[in-house]
C-alpha cells in the first residue's frame, strides 16, 4: 500500500500529498501523523495539496479530522497550495473546511504556524529549556 511521506523541517511536519487518496491511505496518514507528532514534539503540521486535482467531501473530511487530531496533540494545522479550481469546486459544493487554516504556499504556511505559536505563547522562548514539564518541549532544541 502507498504511504504519504511525512517530513520534519525544524519545528514543523510537512505532509505533501502527491497521490489520489483512498480510504486506506487516508487512515494510514492519520495514524502516521499522530505518531510522528508525539514522537517529534512538533507544534505545526503543514499539509501541501498542490498536486491534488480533486478535493471532494472525502478528502475534505480527512483534512478536517487531521486538523482535529493535531489540535488534540497541540499542533497547528495549515493546509497550503490549494488550486483555484479546487477552491471554486469546494465553494460550489458548499464545503468550507471549517476549522482549517489555509495559506497560499508552504512558505506562508510556515509563517502562519510561527505566528500562531507566537500568539499563543508570547513567552515561549524564555521557557524553551526547562521549567515546562511537557516532555515534548524539553526534548526539542
Amino acid at each position: 500500500m502507498e504511504r504519504v511521506p511525512i517530513l520534519k523541517i525544524g519545528e514543523i511536519l510537512l505532509v505533501s500529498i502527491q497521490l489520489d487518496m483512498s480510504d486506506q491511505t487516508a487512515l494510514q496518514l492519520q495514524e502516521d501523523l499522530a505518531e510522528r507528532i508525539v514522537a517529534t514534539g512538533c507544534h505545526g503540521v503543514i499539509i501541501d495539496i498542490t498536486a491534488l486535482d480533486i478535493v471532494d467531501s472525502f478528502v475534505g473530511r480527512m483534512l478536517s479530522s487531521i486538523a482535529s487530531i493535531s489540535k488534540v496533540l497541540d499542533a497547528e494545522t495549515v493546509v497550503v497550495g490549494m488550486r483555484p479550481a479546487v477552491a471554486i469546486t469546494l465553494v460550489e459544493l458548499g464545503l468550507s473546511l471549517n476549522g482549517i487554516r489555509t495559506a497560499l504556499n508552504v512558505e506562508r504556511g510556515m509563517e502562519l504556524v510561527a505566528d500562531a505559536r507566537a500568539d499563543e505563547f508570547p513567552y515561549d522562548d524564555e521557557l524553551a529549556d526547562g521549567s515546562d514539564d511537557d516532555p515534548e518541549t524539553t526534548s526539542s532544541p
Binding site: 495549515v78 493546509v79 483555484p84 479546487v86 477552491a87 469546494l90 489555509t102 497560499l104 504556511g109
Partner: peptide, 12 residues
C-alpha cells in the same frame, strides 16, 4: 461572497 470564500480556502 463565493469568490471571497474560495480565496479564503486558498489562504488569502
Amino acid at each position: 461572497l463565493k469568490t471571497v470564500v474560495a480565496a479564503r480556502l486558498m489562504g488569502a
